[in-house]
Design a protein around this nucleic acid. Structure first.
Length: 425
RNA sequence: GGAGAGGUGGCAGAGUGGUCGAAUGCACCAGACUCGAAAUCUGGCGUACGGUUUUACCGUACCGUGAGUUCGAAUCUCACCCUCUCCGCCA
């Protein structure tokens, strides 16, 4: 949510900022709502003050056993007027609130202008894609040959866009999650957390727009609860409705969880394989920081995600998303794209976003600054990494001519010393 | 799922219709005393929204949430949510 005080003070800057991401801010509607709200609010509060004074007067008079009939007669009708005022004011404020909550974040100044992912800017590239002296297979063929990926059984159980993993591939999937979690907690200073996978709607609305989420999320039948689309939701909401102590900052959390997404809009894309699933695992890293530290924290966080790819020796590039491609709540986002030999291209494996105070305002997440004043926190997060897609990348980049897959060196201890997944005879 | 108890400021805890945004204690901040610290004393110490003459003053709201009764609700009524204890079920 944008800062309404800021909008009142300097609307043109906000409008121009939103225009960069092709969002048309309805100035006329905003001004009309604001004017009406101001008028109604002053009116309502003045009458309320009058009534409060009169009621207090009655109390004092009664204490002295004076006659109060005259005052009470005067006040008699005010209650109904007041109630009507309050209802009208409440409706206006609700309208204004809804209006504001549907407006996305303003892109950070250094986010490049652009319409789609085609306009994203590559900021750095790491590693060189390996050349193969045989025809490469994609992860589906590799995994099925290993007896490790089974989409047919998954379809029988749950339908399309689910997978069943078996044996060494299933263990490799687990090894990846463990490795990521250990790296972030032992080397990058994050605290491991375990969280609920079902959350209430306040949590969703705290990090993104609940209305927009309804199409993409899974709601629990008969309850006001959703399956989490990412651990960002429960973890960021740790600080909802809180004023945290500055000495507890920065907060850095790493969380391994499954993620559930309906992705209603993306049918037809990536239908083959494990790239786009209704359920996938992810190790999420979240930071909650003071405003002056957030830009530096964002750069640091991207490097933490990159470190995983480097240790796995997977070639990748870091993309700065353009104004047309950043998410609703984000002010600035880096995507990490890993090299997939079978697709002969880089594919998204992590998204690291800086939200500034956008989520904090929605969540009422604040801290007391050095001067003792309450201020909104800044929140940021990133995938460190998406486990399913990392599994895909490992299978494809480490495949051998005979169909076997070499285990990346850093994962060998997590695989109980195993160095290769072999095709069963 | 059943029965009972309860939800008040950072925490503990008083307050059962009227100068209550709320006693008191703890914690915290500033000052005094001290070489320094402790102890003691003095003062301060919620949040949101709004207005204005905009580091200040004033107003409004907030005692789990929502509705109701009343001139007036933390206090009375109803519904809901949550927590705790016991029972049942259970990895």
């Amino acid at each position: 949510m944008l800062d309404i005080q800021q909008l009142r003070k300097d609307l043109p800057t906000a409008v121009a900022g939103l225009a960069r991401r092709s969002v048309v801010f309805d100035e006329a509607q905003f001004r009309a709502l604001e004017d009406e709200r101001k008028k109604r609010q002053i009116e309502t509060e003045e009458l309320q003050a009058k009534r409060n004074a009169a009621s207090k007067q009655i109390g004092i008079m009664k204490a002295k056993s004076e006659d109060t009939t005259a005052v009470m007669a005067e006040v008699a009708g005010w209650g109904d007027i007041q109630k009507a005022n309050e209802v009208a004011l409440g409706e206006l404020q609700e309208k204004l609130n809804l209006f504001l909550r549907q407006i996305p974040n303003i892109p950070h100044a250094d986010v490049p202008a652009g319409k789609s992912e085609l306009d994203n800017v590559e900021v750095r590239k790491w590693g060189t894609p390996k050349t193969f002296d045989f025809t490469v297979k994609d992860h589906v063929d590799i995994g099925e040959a290993l007896g490790g990926i089974d989409f047919d059984t998954a379809a029988k159980l749950s339908g399309a866009r689910f997978s069943v993993l078996r044996g060494g591939v299933a263990r490799l999937h687990r090894a990846l999650a463990q490795f990521m979690l250990n790296t972030h907690t032992l080397e990058h200073g994050y605290t491991e957390v375990y969280v609920p996978y079902m959350v209430n709607d306040h949590c969703i609305d705290g990090v993104t727009d609940l209305e927009k989420f309804r199409d993409d999320g899974f709601k629990i039948e008969g309850r006001d609860m959703y399956l989490i689309p990412t651990a960002e939701v429960p973890v960021t909401n740790f600080v909802r409705d809180q004023i945290v102590d500055i000495k507890d900052l920065p907060m850095k959390y790493a969380c391994h969880s499954p993620c559930f997404r309906a992705e209603a809009g993306s049918y037809g894309k990536d239908t083959r394989g494990m790239i786009r699933q209704h359920q996938f695992d992810k190790v999420e890293i979240v930071q909650i920081v003071t405003p002056e530290n957030s830009v530096a924290a964002h750069e640091e966080l991207v490097r933490h995600a990159e470190a995983i790819l480097q240790k796995l020796e997977l070639p990748y590039r870091t993309m700065l998303l353009c104004t047309g491609d950043i998410g609703f709540s984000s002010a600035k986002t880096y995507d990490l794209e890993v090299w997939l030999p079978a697709q002969n291209t880089y594919r998204e494996i992590s998204s690291c976003s800086l939200f500034e105070a956008f989520q904090a305002r929605r969540m009422m997440a604040r801290f007391k600054n050095a001067q003792g004043k309450t201020e909104y926190l800044h929140t940021l997060n990133g995938s460190g990494l998406a486990v399913g897609r990392t599994l895909v990348a490992v299978l494809e980049n480490y495949q051998n001519a005979d169909g076997s897959v070499t285990i990346p060196t850093v994962l060998v201890p997590y695989m109980g010393g195993m160095t290769k997944l072999e095709v069963p005879k």
